[in-house]
Nucleic acid binder design. Structure first.
Lengths: 110, 110
DNA sequence: TAGGGTACTTACTAATAAGTAATTATTATT
DNA sequence: AATAATAATTACTTATTAGTAAGTACCCTA
């Protein structure tokens, strides 16, 4: 008798989308890239995002160990976000999506 | 004087997500793959999707020329969906996402 | 005439995601 | 004492997305 058989079709795509799905997450991951980025820096780089969404999504990504959050005990406060090794594995996904997106844009501007 | 300067940061990621973003679209594209799939077949392969969402998303994908819809004049009706060449360009994205998703699953089942 | 199969369609509701705007804490600067 | 920075937090509203359940059209079979 199995300990758990709760799994209702564990689909890798669905599991991945739980982490990276949504309007802002890939953009945030993309803007962090291989850099350290401060909160305000990300806010400026993604001008259309609201502060609420930015911090909410940063928390989400941190909770899944996609990003690191490093807070410095300074005044005014400074917080740096960076991708974990796990998070860097999302960059190739973004590259593929960018390639597709660029083809779409090219096709539309003929 | 430019004809149009409406573009507010044309981001390839955002453009791509307009087409493939959402809960079901990648799953549908994945299930079609390189095959022809009938409506009922997709319904069975994606058991948790509602008929409403399935047909709504198929329409969306067809409107963006990601899939072809071929209806046969038969009774009972038969409709086959398949990926366009454009749509097949999404498969590598899905492959990357699957790789990431599988790593997540592996990590969780240690 | 009743029921089955296929591919939808529609109206309505529920759930989720996102946006707005005001507020907090801390210290340096003016 | 007021203002400015920074990184949040909160309450509230709106918009978007998804789910439910019933109905449609067509013909075939029993």
């Amino acid at each position: 008798m199995c300990k758990k058989l709760k799994e209702k079709t564990i689909c890798p795509v669905s599991e991945a989308l739980k982490i990276i799905g949504g309007k802002w997450r890939l953009q945030i991951i993309n803007e962090i890239g291989n850099n350290k980025r401060r909160f305000g820096e990300l806010k400026r780089r993604i001008p259309l995002i609201s502060e609420k969404m930015l911090i909410q999504e940063l928390k989400h990504l941190a909770s899944y160990k996609i990003i690191n959050r490093k807070a410095f005990k300074e005044i005014p406060p400074r917080v740096e976000y960076s991708l974990t090794n796990q998070g860097k594995k999302i960059l190739p996904i973004i590259e593929q999506i960018k390639m597709f997106g660029n083809e779409i844009i090219d096709k539309n501007s003929l």
